[in-house]
Simulated assay, not measured.
Amino acid sequence: MLTVQQLEGIQQLQQQCEQHDSIELKLNWEMLRDRQDESMDFFVLKKDVLIAYLALYGFGSTVEVCGMVKPEERRNGHFSTLWMQAQQTILEKGFAKVLFNAPGTSESAKKWMSGQSCTYSFSEFHMHWTEKELADPENIVLREATIEDKKFETALDAEAFSLTLEDAKSYYTQRLSRERERRYIIEAHGTPIGKIRVMRNPDESYLSGFAVLSECRGKGYGSQALQWVVKQEQSTGNTIKLDVETQNDNALKLYERIGFVQKERQDYYHVPLALLTK
């Protein structure tokens, strides 16, 4: 588990980098706060101050990589050093796919990535909800998920997000330890037809895992469910956030209709396992 001092150092470094570069880093704070595996985080300290950081995030058999370096400490090889260390952990843990995550407008990230053996894979928009009138659901209900919903949730994750069933089950188990996360099942006529997760942190509510069964799409169920969740989180005063692939036109249009606006774009780059340093 990361210490309070480490988390504070990561947060301070993130703020410095975001302000300097006018970007928004995706550091998956819901995972950092619940870290159980200390081997997934890599640090460079200078006089007890964090100046460079790299994190690994496991999603089933896929691992995502994200990091940052204090602006005045860049071009000193710190991030490359951390990446060399991280490669050993990736190989030891047997991940099958490696994705680098970098803000789309970060010039320093683009420059570093250009010197690596990786290829562009896809992008996501980070979106924030803005004030807009929302409707109450008419023919659906949402309830908190229970362990009995595991089969439904994992099967829907596999279908909606192109995961193997094994990866979906692994990710489901991983998320159970997140005390601040609520999982909702969307029901129509008493039958589960979708799901959505909400990670409620002190200043933000992050929505994820939103999916509806393929045969139930296009009927307004997803729009009603999303509006219900946003109304619940609106009362907290939190910024309500989510991520969506830039090529997912249907989801983008839905989110925009409800009031979400695009913020930072996150680019993902695929790193072939064969090129990792053994």
Rank of each mutant, 00 (worst) to 15 (best):
D243Q: 11
T81A: 15
F210S: 01
S177G: 13
Q12K: 07
Q16P: 01
I23Q: 01
K70M: 08
V230H: 01
G58S: 15
D149E: 13
S223C: 09
L276D: 12
E148G: 12
S80M: 10
G9C: 07
Q11S: 14
S117D: 15
R74F: 04
L54F: 06
T239S: 06
E153Y: 08
Q14S: 10
H78Q: 09
E215G: 01
Y268W: 08
R182S: 07
V63M: 07
S208A: 14
T277W: 10
L213K: 05
Y57N: 11
T130Q: 14
Y221F: 13
A145W: 04
A55N: 09
L156W: 03
I51K: 01
K26H: 09
D34G: 11
M1S: 14
K151E: 15
F95E: 11
K278A: 12
N250L: 07
Q87D: 10
E107N: 08
G194I: 01
H270Q: 14
E245M: 12
T173A: 15
E73S: 09
S117L: 12
Q36Y: 12
L7I: 12
N250H: 10
E148W: 08
V69A: 06
Y184D: 07
T119H: 11
M31Y: 11
A225H: 03
L99K: 02
S121T: 04
M84C: 09
C66E: 15
Y269T: 01
F125A: 03
Q234F: 08
F152M: 04
E72D: 15
E72L: 08
A155T: 03
I196C: 03
K169C: 09
K26T: 09
G104Q: 03
A145C: 02
R183F: 09
C118E: 11
F42Y: 13
K97E: 15
G190R: 07
A145L: 04
L207C: 04
D203E: 15
N101K: 06
M40T: 10
P103Q: 07
I258G: 04
R74Q: 14
H20G: 03
M40P: 00
G94I: 04
Y172Q: 04
Q247W: 09
K263E: 07
Q87K: 02
Q262G: 00
P103A: 09
L56I: 06
D41M: 11
Y120W: 11
E256P: 00
V212M: 05
M127K: 00
I185Y: 08
T277C: 11
T3V: 12
G190C: 10
L156F: 05
S22Q: 12
P192A: 14
G58D: 14
K111N: 08
F260P: 00
D48Y: 10
D267H: 02
A274Q: 15
F260D: 02
H20F: 13
L27A: 10
L242W: 01
E124S: 02
V198T: 08
V198H: 05
A168H: 01
E30T: 08
L226Y: 09
V4C: 11
